[in-house]
Write a protein that binds this DNA or RNA. Structure first.
Lengths: 256, 256
DNA sequence: TACTGTGAATGCTTTCACAGCA
DNA sequence: TGCTGTGAAAGCATTCACAGTA
């Protein structure tokens, strides 16, 4: 009924579809790589191939953030990078806290500021007294009881939950109490949060199960014989960008 | 044009939407937890709340795999578990290989068979000679040059790429050559694969950037003042399942 | 001429709402 | 009566295809 608003309340000028936001982050990564290689201009076709989407989708996505291309030419890499960073809110740096310093927590703490820019891990928490003080990836581990004060002091805006499932909800509650409004959850648990808090989850078992589903489907519909079709035409050719798939929040160019 | 087929070619009886598959995996996890608690029967309402979706969506999702409920009563937990496992292809066990034994690779190797069932990690690969033979999580590390023979011997069906970005495509090519048709990619790279291979990706930086976007939006549209609204009505009440959100392949019940 | 930006068309996904059954 | 299963409606997302422009 209200065709001019965006559901977020105010009739803000930017109502970017959720799906497009995820892809913008991918474009940004690809563009950064291009910039490093000294590429200054790129067409929607080139960028879309590099990002594993089709060019129409890419142009539509970019149109949500404004019109920064030049017809007949393409986009300036730097301009696009700046604009996507602006839209994704990467101008202000976000400090990340990781809770749960097991195997995964270690991996995250050492991930080194995350590919490129914007997300320094600046605080670590656990319950294990043996871990206290010992730095992991250069950052000391704090006790989870200090979460409120440490998060306030370090201006944490993003909390990452890497605890065992049983602890995840409690940790989540504490993060929320400490004022954290963005949470990335690796524990296989459905978190309960107030409406003001944004949660994303990464569930490795679910990812594997989705792969398993497709594997099973393939096995079922396989005509017969053991020799599966393997049209392996190696050699990074992007000649005919046929079937340039992007399944779900997944994505990988199909080569042939 | 072909209204009876499912795009996969044959007019198979089960054309389960991609989005539903991801949720079925979540339902399975929740149901397994219920089974452990001795719960034998569950209604769509109860299960949907526990899984963080609304009940209509849950019922629709379950309808794709068949009709296993009893009107007026609900679903039998065991029956549902069996059926979802069947559809997801979890009856045949899938062996997983992890390539790249850095921090993340360690974490994955130690992930202990993945929550519950079906995905034993049985092979590890790296290029670093220092790692060879040393077991990680009880599994010896092999050199990547042996990938074909080891994958064949261990009947690997799923490959997990946890290498630095620069190595990811080469590793992917090798996995594909070794006959692996399901790949879970943690490297921030768009992989090129033949059509027969299914890729899913997990990109931590992208996840953080999506959170950052929502954070920024919130900050923009905040009326004024520093005191953000924090309607923290703690105490795991699911009384009014208002606004029971599930954003993207993300998901978390909104509590209030 | 070559490539962007975008309405309109198509195709998925979610939600509604209710018929049907234990 | 209470809850499932499902057509039909509504809402998003993707793709098409072409007008517009440097």
């Amino acid at each position: 009924m209200p065709p001019l608003t965006n559901g977020q309340g105010a009739l803000s000028p930017r109502a970017i579809p959720e799906a497009a936001v995820a892809r913008l982050a991918v474009y940004l990564r690809v563009l950064s790589g291009m910039k490093e290689q000294g590429i200054t201009t790129v067409s929607s076709e080139e960028l879309s191939v590099a990002a594993g989407v089709n060019s129409a989708k890419l142009r539509k996505d970019l149109s949500y953030i404004g019109t920064y291309g030049t017809r007949g030419v393409g986009y300036e890499v730097e301009v696009l990078i700046d604009q996507i960073e602006r839209v994704l809110g990467l101008t202000r740096e976000q400090s990340v806290a990781v809770v749960g310093i097991g195997n995964l927590g270690h991996a995250l703490a050492n991930y080194g500021g995350f590919p490129g820019r914007g997300f320094p891990v600046t605080a670590l928490f656990d319950v294990d007294p043996d871990l206290m003080g010992v730095p992991v990836g250069g950052i000391p581990v704090n006790h989870i009881d200090d979460i409120a004060s440490v998060c306030a002091a370090k201006e944490i805006t993003i909390g990452v939950i890497a605890t065992p499932p049983a602890a995840a909800q409690v940790v989540c509650d504490r993060l929320v109490q400490a004022g954290v409004e963005c949470i990335l959850n690796f524990a296989p648990v459905v978190l309960q949060v107030p409406e003001t808090v944004e949660v994303r989850k990464v569930d490795l078992a679910v990812e594997l199960q989705i792969l398993s589903f497709h594997q099973a489907r393939r096995a079922d519909s396989a005509p017969s014989g053991e020799t599966a079709p393997q049209p392996r035409s190696n050699g990074r050719v992007n000649g005919s960008p046929r079937h340039s798939v992007e399944n779900r929040p997944n994505g990988a160019v199909v080569r042939r």
